[in-house]
Nucleic acid binder design. Structure first.
Lengths: 249, 249
DNA sequence: TGCAGATTGTGCGTATATCGCACATATGTG
DNA sequence: CACATATGTGCGATATACGCACAATCTGCA
């Protein structure tokens, strides 16, 4: 059809693989076909191919689920960038110091995509978000910071098209107000978002390189404590400086 | 060709994606074609498809590298299994108690595939291994434990065919001796491997469910300290018991 | 500088793998 | 029990992927 340099069957297969987005652990053929906008027969053959290759397993009946083998792709990315060796220890060390988990993320499509996440025992805010999971672009400090780092045309385009996914009464629903927040993040070089995604949670983000940001969340005490903000931002900036030094990502 | 229910183009595309295995961050077309055993022209079209879909980016010249978007597949798996919410906190808590990072792994092909890894500030042994990376099956405690958990025909098959990748003078090179270690692991329900992969490092592993194992590594002091072994195994068993309770993986 | 070997870009005829409809069967829902 | 929805699969038509072949480009070495 379109371009002789694009293998459409492969593209469709990737869409099938992408249908397993984590929102449901097990999918039926009909569900897969719907999510990937493919003919059922086509989706079926592609799923069977994935089963044959060991990336998906059938539960005997009409359920299909990813196998751990899909993690190899992530391993290819993370290993190539040496994330485990260079980035993770830095995140862990600063997370321990500041007392909150630190995440690294990039922009991917209309989402914030988590690249790495320091873990921390006894962390009050138990994320539940892991590597490869996504967060809303417009209602997180990470997302707004990422927007601020893009060229203005691209940022404007994303601001206009990304879905509004705020989940709190305080969440901004006017894209112009979000734009103002993004502009402020751009000039300040950091972003603070209060209660946009989870009630009582404040998110902080700073850039680390041209593509990536790091951030942390913490429970908002009674009244905005400027000292808390200061400490969180300072910790992130130190961490970012160290990450930039390593040159990874 | 073979089976009308298998889309060969998609299978080839997956082979191309798998060519990015983390051993080199950036690959040329010729290298990709070689690794995936495909005709150069075919590999090229498949890579261009990956670029079109945003999973690979070209560095302008003749270099191709994965984009973070491939992590979405990992996110689909991890999110579906709720690894971030159910598994990670348990690993972190026990790792902090025992003072060493704990990894969870499954068997995938001829490799140990890392599913999750607790991080720990100030850990002496800095792994460098991350989620999705692989370890040798025959020369790690994790791998031998996984072998011990498989039906004997499958274990025998893997024992005979998996590559010998020991990297120390003490590493076993006789498959029969490794088989004896696996047999012992099966009857004991745990596995200890000394200096098989890294000199001076001892690995410990115990099962957690029918498919997965958890393990940790620590530097071997002078002389085998039975108390250290005891402590490591005990910690892993407690951790495994808790993981089995959660029902994840 | 110049040559040899390797890598890359791509056009094109042909064989065939893929598409997607359509029908039959299975499942499950009120 | 009937209706709605999901699944398995055969098949003809055709879009599509294959892979050779040639040209352009790059890389290293003498």
């Amino acid at each position: 059809m379109q371009n002789r340099n694009i293998a459409s069957t492969f593209a469709k297969g990737l869409a099938v693989l992408g249908a397993f987005d984590g929102s449901a652990p097990v999918l039926s053929l009909a569900e897969i076909a719907r999510r990937s906008s493919l003919d059922r027969a086509v989706a079926r053959r592609l799923v069977l191919t994935l089963v044959d290759q060991g990336f998906v397993q059938s539960d005997g009946a009409r359920g299909y689920r990813l196998t751990p083998r899909v993690l190899r792709f992530a391993g290819g990315y993370l290993g190539g960038r040496q994330v485990g060796r260079l980035v993770q220890p830095v995140l862990d060390r600063h997370a321990a110091r500041v007392g909150a988990p630190i995440s690294m993320a990039v922009l991917d499509g209309h989402d914030v995509l988590l690249l790495a996440q320091s873990t921390l025992q006894n962390s009050v805010v138990t994320f539940g978000f892991t590597l490869g999971s996504t967060l809303p672009l417009l209602h997180t400090s990470l997302g707004r910071m990422l927007l601020a780092m893009r060229p203005s045309e691209i940022a404007a385009e994303l601001l206009a098209t990304a879905p509004l996914q705020g989940r709190t009464p305080e969440a901004l629903t006017d894209r112009r107000l979000i734009r103002a927040e993004v502009d402020q993040a751009r000039s300040a070089g950091l972003c603070i978002a209060r209660a946009q995604l989870e009630a009582g949670i404040t998110g902080y983000a700073v850039p680390t390189g041209p593509e990536a940001v790091i951030g942390l969340s913490r429970a908002q005490g009674l009244g905005h404590d400027a000292q808390d903000d200061q400490a969180a931002i300072k910790a992130l900036q130190l961490c970012a400086a160290e990450l930039i030094q390593t040159g990874a990502v």
